Amino acid sequence: MSSPTPTDSKSSRSSLIAIIAALVIGALVALAGSQDGTTVGGIPLFALAVAAAFAIQIIAFIPAMLLQTERFFDLTGSLTFFVISAALVLLSPLPDARSWILAAMVMLWAVRLGSFLVLRVHKAGSDGRFDKIKGSPLRFLQVWVIQGAWVSLTASAAWIAISSDPAAGAPIGWLTILGIVVWALGMAIEIIADVQKSAFRADPRHRDEFIRTGLWSRSRHPNYFGEIVIWVGVFVAAAPVLVGWQWVALLSPLFVILLLTRVSGIPLLEARADEKWGERADYIEYRENTPVLIPRLTRPTVRATAG
């Protein structure tokens, strides 16, 4: 048995630091968001939700590591959103209409995401992102713990509002209605964009081509724009009942925006697209005339045919 190389040791240290950082962030968000919230057995309900989000990922990691598979990684994240949102509204002593609405918003989003990801995994098989890390327990654990942080931060606005003190509640007003409308708009945009891209890829004529029709003619990443709008809507609907440190819920839309525009979303896909089509004149034209995120309202000037 060979001894660990310096590269392996450095990678393990980085993974350990990432795991600790994710857990600390989760703990701090749980502490702040639990202020003036309801409790179960003396423990803040929101803190229990965050702890459960991490616990579910760590429990799921064990069989994933033993079986050396990532096939249920994305599904576990979606189920975590659904299960904890449902549990929160059921465990709240006096859930109001806003709590039920927020839980439904997150759960419907999770059902759509989960079904979409299950179909994608079924078609694609193994996920190449995990090939180099499944053999290292610490590195593999890292992505599961980070998923716990992703779930907790993304859902924080809804979960904090659901678990807030019923006595501090506010009636459904124009701001909550606005949040519902914004959420519905984001869902529609994301669903339409995903359906259009799936149909495009299913056509053999479009093999090795890039999509530039429908919503994709107005934005290079309309699905990500829809995702951001969804969580802005959730935050707006939750905002009327937030007090004090509970405003840490603002991290929900800000985290989604940062993640998709600066970390793992748009930057990775743009780099991949540039590598694949960067020397093609039609792709350069599309890239230069199509906004990266926020869809243009005017008719696009690039050609809408492909393949």
Rank of each mutant, 00 (worst) to 15 (best):
P137E: 01
A124E: 14
G135I: 04
P137G: 01
V143L: 13
R139A: 09
R120N: 14
G114A: 11
G114W: 09
K132W: 02
F116L: 10
L117I: 13
K132P: 04
Q147M: 06
F140C: 06
H122L: 14
H122F: 02
A124T: 13
K123I: 05
I146C: 02
R129S: 13
G135T: 04
S126Y: 05
F116W: 12
R129H: 12
V145N: 06
G114I: 11
V143H: 01
G114T: 13
K123F: 00
G135C: 09
H122E: 10
F130K: 02
P137W: 05
R129D: 07
H122M: 10
H122T: 06
K132F: 00
G114R: 13
W144H: 14
Q147V: 02
V145I: 14
S126W: 03
V118P: 00
D131A: 11
V143Y: 09
V118S: 05
D131V: 08
V143D: 01
S136K: 05
R139K: 15
I146G: 06
F116A: 10
F130W: 10
V145C: 10
I133K: 08
V143R: 02
V118G: 02
Q142G: 09
D127G: 07
H122R: 14
H122N: 07
V121I: 15
G128Y: 03
V145F: 08
G135H: 11
D127Y: 03
K132Q: 11
Q147P: 07
G135D: 09
L119C: 11
G135M: 04
R129N: 12
D131W: 02
R139F: 05
H122D: 08
D131H: 12
V118Y: 11
L119A: 05
Q142F: 06
F130D: 00
V118K: 05
G128Q: 03
L117E: 10
G135E: 01
R120P: 15
V145M: 06
L141T: 04
K134N: 05
F140A: 02
D131C: 03
S126A: 09
G114N: 12
D131M: 01
K123V: 07
R139G: 15
R120D: 12
G125P: 09
S126G: 07
K134A: 06
H122W: 09
S126N: 10
K132L: 08
R120C: 09
L138E: 01
R129G: 14
I133Y: 11
V145W: 04
D127M: 02
R120Y: 03
L117Y: 02
D131N: 15
A124C: 02
G114E: 12
D131S: 12
Q147F: 11
Q147D: 04
W144G: 03
L117S: 11
R129C: 11
V145R: 01
R120H: 10
V121E: 04
V121Q: 14
D127C: 06
G135V: 02
P137A: 04
D127R: 11
L119V: 08
Q147L: 05
S115V: 14
V121A: 14
L117W: 02
F116I: 08
G125F: 00
I133C: 08
R120V: 09
V145H: 05
V145S: 01
S136W: 04
D127L: 12
H122C: 04
F140E: 04
S115M: 14
R129F: 07
V143A: 08
L138D: 00
F140K: 01
R120M: 13
D127P: 10
D127E: 09
G128M: 03
I133D: 06
F116D: 13
K123S: 12
